Computed example of a mutant assay.
Amino acid sequence: MAHFGYTMMTEQAGPRELVAHAIGAEKAGFDFSVMSDHSFPWLESQGHAPYAWSVLGAAAQATSSLPLMTFVTCPTFRYHPAVIAQKAATMQMLSGGRFRLGLGSGENLNEHIIGAGWPAAPVRLEMLEEAVGIIRSLLAGDTVSHRGPHFDVDNAKLWDLPEDPPAIGIAVSGERSCEIAGRYGDLVIATEPRRELLEAFDTHGGAGGPRIGQLPVCYDTDRDAAIARAHDQFRWSLGGWQVNAELPGPAGFEQAGTHIRPQDVADVIPCGADVHTFVEAVRPFRDAGFTEIALAQVGGDQQEPFLRWAQAELLPALREL
């Protein structure tokens, strides 16, 4: 049976609102929650980018049973992997064991702010692999000194460790990232319902681990309003990750999306209030073998009506899959 999650999107809501959304998701009956970790929104119309880790700590205190997860954090530019390990250990303790650490190779949109440049994808994946190894060692309680091609660690140790370390998920989009996920991850993360990604994860050692997907949705009783909002705030998502990982800011995404029509977005993102349409959009993830699917409602000011509808209609229908 698949589990269904709720996405707290730092790109489209402020910190206090995001915590309120987590409380609402728990009350609505979602099985888990994930949270983006951005320094910029994708588009200016989204308008937000609070510090995800502060919000996660607040959400851990404001909820009692909702599992929380970064979806995803890049441990190679804005954050040093030793700092990520400390963040993750603390979050696992604050949440009472409800935290999972989702990691990925990042996007230029968020990582450019430290002025370190943006290397080619193979280098970013090398950095991710090295970073995950450091994080795992620290979460295991080791004292770590490391001199690597990308990171140095000098006599690091975590002094507050949870009884059980948080599970680590790795975001994948191709063979190399699947190899890293299979070797170092406890679970795999993807935003496309591609069975071959899960098979590659299994091949490289991940067999049996959870598989988490994500789907943007746009609930509104007025379908035309939903389509307009999805186009305004989420047309960037149609660019694909080879494009989305490279552009440096919202202006670039604005330019890249000029050719995308509202109907193009509606063909990909379920819009409106027809439960069947939303269920059918989720089905490819379930059929591909994903065990958990996180829904991302478009529109920071549209979360409460979505959560009410999800509790009353959408989640019961999804659980019949």
Rank of each mutant, 00 (worst) to 15 (best):
M1Q: 01
M9G: 06
T10S: 09
Q12G: 03
G14R: 04
R16I: 15
A25W: 01
A25Q: 05
K27R: 12
H38N: 12
F40G: 03
E44V: 11
Y51G: 14
A52D: 10
W53G: 02
Q61S: 14
Q61V: 07
A62H: 12
S65L: 12
L66Q: 02
P67C: 01
L68M: 08
M69R: 07
T73Q: 08
R78F: 06
Y79V: 00
A82R: 00
V83K: 00
V83C: 00
A85H: 00
K87V: 07
A88Y: 00
Q92P: 07
S95F: 02
G96V: 03
G97C: 05
G104R: 04
N108S: 15
L109P: 02
H112W: 11
H112R: 15
I114T: 08
A116E: 14
A121V: 15
A121H: 14
P122S: 11
V123M: 04
R124N: 00
L125N: 11
A131W: 00
V132C: 06
V132G: 02
I134S: 10
R136E: 06
S137V: 06
L138E: 09
A140P: 02
G141P: 09
G141T: 09
R147S: 12
R147L: 15
F151W: 07
F151E: 01
F151H: 05
K157G: 14
K157S: 15
K157I: 13
L158G: 02
W159H: 14
L161H: 04
P165M: 02
P165L: 03
P166V: 01
E175N: 06
E175V: 08
R176H: 13
E179F: 04
A181K: 09
R183L: 07
T191C: 12
P193M: 09
L197M: 13
E199N: 05
E199P: 01
F201H: 01
T203F: 14
T203P: 06
G205C: 03
G205T: 03
G209T: 10
P210C: 01
R211A: 11
I212C: 09
Q214G: 15
L215N: 06
Y219R: 10
R223N: 07
D224F: 08
A226M: 07
A228R: 12
A230S: 12
D232N: 14
W236V: 10
V243K: 07
N244Q: 14
A245V: 12
A245C: 09
L247M: 12
P248M: 05
G252Y: 02
G252S: 12
A256S: 13
A256D: 12
H259E: 14
I260F: 08
P262N: 14
Q263V: 14
Q263L: 10
Q263P: 06
Q263A: 15
D264G: 11
A266N: 05
D267G: 13
P270E: 06
P270T: 05
H276F: 09
V282E: 08
R283P: 03
R283Y: 08
R283D: 04
P284I: 03
D287L: 04
A288G: 13
F290T: 01
A296K: 05
G300K: 00
Q302D: 15
Q303W: 04
Q303E: 10
E304G: 02
A310M: 05
R319N: 03
R319G: 07
